[in-house]
């Protein structure tokens, strides 16, 4: 897929809960500028909050790279969360609702996946973790079952 290269990538550190707040603010601002509606912004920022907190808590800190996406008329945002922490041994298990190795609710990974349109995990034990998500500002609604 073509991504215009002139937009560049914004890199933000994730090393404290103050950083988490800053990352949420930056993502909301960029998403709003790209034309995400209020509900879409809220979903994306919530997913970002979950993933950035995982980078901090489970990954021991890291960073997020944020890239604006332009495909024809579509506007989107890609975010890659990277840490060099312990990695995830069993990704399917980690993606299960309610599974946690810590004191959280175990809803972060699985929930974040439901809140964005694209989601991928690259992780193995000892190799750190990169989780990449993308969301699109919809004029074109995300496909979903019609009610009634």
């Amino acid at each position: 897929m073509q991504t215009s290269s002139d937009t560049g990538t914004i890199r933000l550190p994730i090393g404290s809960d103050v950083d988490l707040a800053w990352v949420r603010q930056q993502v909301r601002q960029v998403a709003a500028e790209l034309g995400f509606g209020l509900v879409q912004q809220t979903k994306l920022v919530t997913a970002v909050s979950e993933l950035a907190r995982n980078t901090l808590i489970h990954g021991g800190g890291g960073q997020v790279e944020m890239t604006a996406l332009y495909r024809g008329p579509a506007r989107g945002l890609r975010l890659a969360f990277t840490d060099s922490g312990p990695g995830i041994r069993d990704i399917d298990q980690a993606m299960t609702d309610g599974y946690t190795t810590g004191s959280g609710l175990g809803m972060g990974l699985s929930g974040a996946k439901r809140l964005v349109q694209e989601f991928s995990i690259d992780s193995s034990p000892g190799q750190g973790t990169t989780i990449t998500v993308a969301a699109w500002a919809t004029g074109l609604p995300h496909p979903r079952a019609e009610a009634g």
Binding site: V39, K43, T46, D97, L105, M107, S110, G111, L115
Partner: peptide, 14 residues
């Protein structure tokens, strides 16, 4: 609770 927050919470699974 804001409506957008409520909608998101349901999808998050909380």
């Amino acid at each position: 609770m804001r409506p957008a927050v409520a909608i998101t919470l349901v999808e998050l699974g909380l």
